[in-house]
């Protein structure tokens, strides 16, 4: 459902490709965006790839996502204390899970990087820590089949702003955050005052949740 164009000012054109990836090429989209950075184009392309995997079991799209994330997932697992062969096995498993769970990816609530991170984190807990992993209930059986293009765009942009803000943090704080996310800090070592600039992305996700709740009524 394309409803985006109506509620935004004229400088913004909804990325039709995000909603109907099959009939949209990257070239076509490039012409339609304004003020979209290369990084954002890459991120939107990744969203498109996951939707192509979901809708068309597209192996070329999968290969694109794989090239971007599989080596990163492996490096993450090695940094989190896994040996190379286990990290290889887990990374394959994480990428296969991405394929099987493509229908659960909601680009109005997470970037592909974030989604892959959560899958990798879960696999790390399952295979390395060998604990059960209580998860919050989902709001619905799956996201809207045709996510609102403007919402997707906004969330991906917000994710990018967060990446930018994180890169501007002092090295010391950044290292600490990295340690926390690679499992090198216990929960009691993680401080409550994180000082992370998360307000805006939180509001964006909150909005997406409200829309989802509304759609369920």
């Amino acid at each position: 459902m394309l409803t985006a164009g109506t509620s935004f000012d004229d400088s913004y054109v909804a990325p039709a490709g995000v909603c109907t990836p099959v009939c949209c090429t990257l070239e076509a989209r490039k012409g339609r965006y304004r003020k979209v950075s290369t990084k954002e184009q890459e991120d939107l392309r990744l969203v498109e790839c996951v939707l192509l995997i979901r809708d068309a079991q597209d192996k070329a799209a999968f290969a694109e996502v794989f090239r971007r994330f599989a080596p990163r997932v492996k490096a993450y697992l090695i940094k989190s204390g896994s040996d190379a062969s286990m990290a290889e096995e887990c990374a394959q498993d994480v990428m296969a899970t991405l394929w099987h769970k493509a229908h659960l990816f909601d680009p109005t609530r997470a970037s592909v990087s974030t989604w892959v991170f959560t899958i990798a984190r879960n696999r790390r807990i399952d295979m390395i820590r060998k604990q059960r992993r209580p998860e919050p209930d989902e709001l619905t059986w799956g996201p809207e089949p045709e996510p609102n293009a403007a919402d997707v765009m906004e969330l991906q942009q917000e994710s990018n702003r967060l990446v930018q803000a994180l890169s501007e943090l002092p090295d010391k704080q950044r290292d600490l955050i990295q340690k926390a996310y690679f499992g090198d800090l216990t929960h009691s070592e993680i401080a409550d005052e994180t000082g992370l600039p998360l307000g805006t992305i939180k509001s964006r996700i909150r909005l997406a949740l409200e829309k989802l709740r509304h759609a369920m009524k």
Binding site: P71, K74, S113, T114, F117, S159, L162, I177, L196, I201
Partner: peptide
């Protein structure tokens, strides 16, 4: 739930940023 989403987005950024050496 939204705040958790934000903290997970930090994880996504960390994953994006990790140095890679080995292919899968």
């Amino acid at each position: 739930r939204a705040r958790l989403g934000a903290f997970e987005a930090v994880g996504g950024a960390m994953l994006d940023d990790v140095a890679t050496s080995q292919d899968v």
